[in-house]
Design a binder for these strands. Sequence first.
DNA 1: AACTCCAGCAACCGCGTTGTC
DNA 2: GGACAACGCGGTTGCTGGAGT
Length: 292
Amino acid sequence: MGRAPCCDKANVKRGPWSPEEDAKLKDYIEKQGTGGNWIALPHKAGLRRCGKSCRLRWLNYLRPNIRHGDFSEEEDNIICSLFASIGSRWSVIAAHLHGRTDNDIKNYWNTKLKKKLIATMAPPPPHQLVAIASSSLSPSSSHYNMTNNLPPYNPTISTNQLISPHLSPHQEMMMTMMDQQQQQLLYKEAMDSLVNSPNSNKLIMSHQEDSHAQSTNKGIMLLSDVRSGSSTTSTVTRVKMEQHDHHHEERSMQDYGMEEINHLISSSCTSSSSNSLWFDENKTEDTFMLYY
DNA sequence: AACTCCAGCAACCGCGTTGTC
DNA sequence: GGACAACGCGGTTGCTGGAGT
């Protein structure tokens, strides 16, 4: 059974508000208040409008001290930082910006600020992370599975969980702007690039045990730079994994040849009939990064 | 001048949450 | 505590006006 409509749609006016309607609504609310009942308000105010529509019009346009347009640099920064930390909770973000409505901020973000951020993304330095993957693999488990059996992207993990201290604020912003499909796609590209890299002698692998993430879910993949898409990820030449206990261990490709990695990958394939044996529930959460 | 495309924005829709009986 | 009504929020839609051809 569907939800009952909030009003009789056949008898309410829809579409843009006329100045007369605005005046009626404004006048009524200024004199009588909303009465705590938006559904009854349009009838009392003599408007043939849905209560929801009246509420929206009042909150987004008619109420006092509303500001429109011309977001300042400071407001941009607030929006960006809040978006990076709490996501698209526009009402919460709006609460931090005096006179701005959630709808305004949402529109501003979708039409301008997001593009502005992408445009101002500085080219990453050569050592910058291309991708970060987190899995519950142990590096000794020989379960890296990166050829034809890519580990599944795990959408159950929130973006916020994915954002790690390894990322710059800009990279965090980029991640929050990517949907899961984009993340999955870039992740696959990065993995393909890694496995298929002809310049295999540049591949370095070490290990990091991420104790902070041990209690979290597993099998997530995070790509931190989407600026150049596949062309960027195709230049992946190194994998670096760092020990969480500060015992950094970096092994050159002499230690981890491409064949060895492929062997590690393929060995995981044989240990399960599934093409997604990416996780080992008994292992600790690890993080590895792809550098270029 | 006519047409198409597209960015920007106002408004709508549907769902989760909260309040009331 | 369950049912229902209303609110509030975020995602989406569609209208409008300006730019480009």
